[in-house]
Amino acid sequence: MNPQKDKKYWLDNPGNINKIVYGLYSICTILILLEFAYHKHINFLFENWFGFFSWFGFIACLALVLLAKQMRKIVKRDEDYYGD
């Protein structure tokens, strides 16, 4: 038996993965709240919209993944499609 295989890692426990996810939620909340705490130096007016970079990042990734998923319907082929 491979001793490496038996070793339990911190990440093997699903509870710890939840801890990371909740950690991410709280950091995101803090980052949103920081909007009240500083003065933004901006180039474009829309950057001043509340939490602009937060929801832009969120929606950008959502759109990216959902569109890419649809794109699969058109471009996906079998692995040996080119036959080499």
Binding site: L24, Y25, C28, L31, L34, Y38, I42, I59, C61, V65
Partner: peptide
């Protein structure tokens, strides 16, 4: 501004990934 806005952009992208 740069540090906070960049962190917002990145971590909310990570949030989207996690939720998906």
């Amino acid at each position: 501004t740069h540090v906070i806005t960049q962190l917002q952009l990145l971590l909310f992208s990570a949030l989207a990934f996690t939720l998906l």
